[in-house]
């Protein structure tokens, strides 16, 4: 809902879903690695998970899609 609108407004050069995934990675970069830091290490009180876990969880999947779309036609991944 809200997130879709925000993504749409940030759509940039790339066509299709790649722009959504790039936006998601940009969001992660900013919210987890930028911003005012109040406490050193954070475990999310509400979820009891580490921010690094969260980052991995959200970004897995997104990276592959971005890699594929920036590279053009899908190439064999060799794995």
């Amino acid at each position: 809902m809200n997130s879709v609108a925000a993504v749409a407004s940030r759509r940039a050069e790339l066509a299709g879903h790649a722009s959504r995934e790039v936006t998601l990675i940009d969001l992660l970069d900013r919210l987890l690695q930028g911003g005012i830091v109040v406490q050193g290490d954070i475990t999310l009180a509400a979820a009891d998970i580490d921010l690094v876990d969260l980052s991995l969880r959200v970004v897995v999947g997104a990276v592959d899609v971005v890699a594929r779309d920036l590279r053009g036609p899908l190439q064999p991944q060799g794995r």
């Binding site: 992660l28 919210l31 690695q33 930028g34 959200v58």
Partner: peptide
């Protein structure tokens, strides 16, 4: 992801009318 966007939307709403220092997610 949904919670990250909730944080982002809240900051953006404030930013619409003010200069802001965004706080890292999860503080």
């Amino acid at each position: 992801e949904a919670e990250l966007w909730q944080h982002e939307s809240a900051v953006e709403e404030l930013m619409a009318a003010h200069d802001v220092l965004p706080v890292r997610f999860g503080e």
